[in-house]
Simulated assay, not measured.
Amino acid sequence: MIITWKVGGGLKDKLKEYEQRMTEANFKLTSQRRLILRVLLENINEHLSAEEVYQLVRERNPRVGLATVYRTLELFCELGILHELNFDNNCRRYELEQGDYHHHHLICLKCGKIIEFSDYILKDLEGYIDREYNFDVVDHRIKFYGYCSDCRIESKD
């Protein structure tokens, strides 16, 4: 089952929520940070690299530098606004925090597409691990590598 997370409450509500989180941590939501956050929110279902965020930001404001994008992404990760992901291709990618929605990733080896999925059977597995091994699971990350439906169709042609 593939699940796509959408911004609940709208863009303005999420911007306010993140602005409050930054204010509570004694940071300001500058115009550059606001623009970067807006780009991330508008691409909520993407797993963007810093360079991709930079390109999208520069389309709107060419004065924003790559270093600003990197620093802002790092800050957003520290504040729990973003999660940094590594899909083993030496390229860090980012996604906005999604509350209680825990998901995993399917990575296409041909085109690089990243598909999010959630499988509640993993909750049962966590319970089993806790009972069987007396081990308190606090987090996990699962990545499956293979070929998306588009690339599977191309290879059959």
Rank of each mutant, 00 (worst) to 15 (best):
N89Y: 10
Y94K: 01
N90A: 01
L79K: 14
F76V: 06
L79M: 14
N86M: 07
L96C: 01
N90H: 02
C91H: 00
Y94H: 06
L96K: 03
G80T: 06
N90E: 01
L82M: 15
F87Y: 15
D88F: 15
Q98M: 12
R92Q: 06
G99F: 08
G99N: 11
E84F: 08
R93E: 09
D88I: 11
C77I: 06
N89G: 14
R93G: 09
R93L: 10
Y94R: 02
E78C: 01
E95F: 03
G99E: 11
L85G: 09
E78M: 01
H83S: 12
Q98Y: 08
L85C: 11
Y101R: 14
Y94W: 06
E97H: 09
L75Y: 08
Y94L: 05
E84M: 15
E95D: 05
C91M: 00
D100G: 01
E95K: 04
L79C: 08
R93A: 05
G99K: 12
E84I: 15
E78T: 05
L96A: 01
E84W: 08
G80K: 06
F76T: 07
Y101S: 03
E74G: 09
L96E: 01
E74R: 13
H102Y: 12
L85R: 08
F87W: 13
Q98H: 14
C77N: 10
E97I: 01
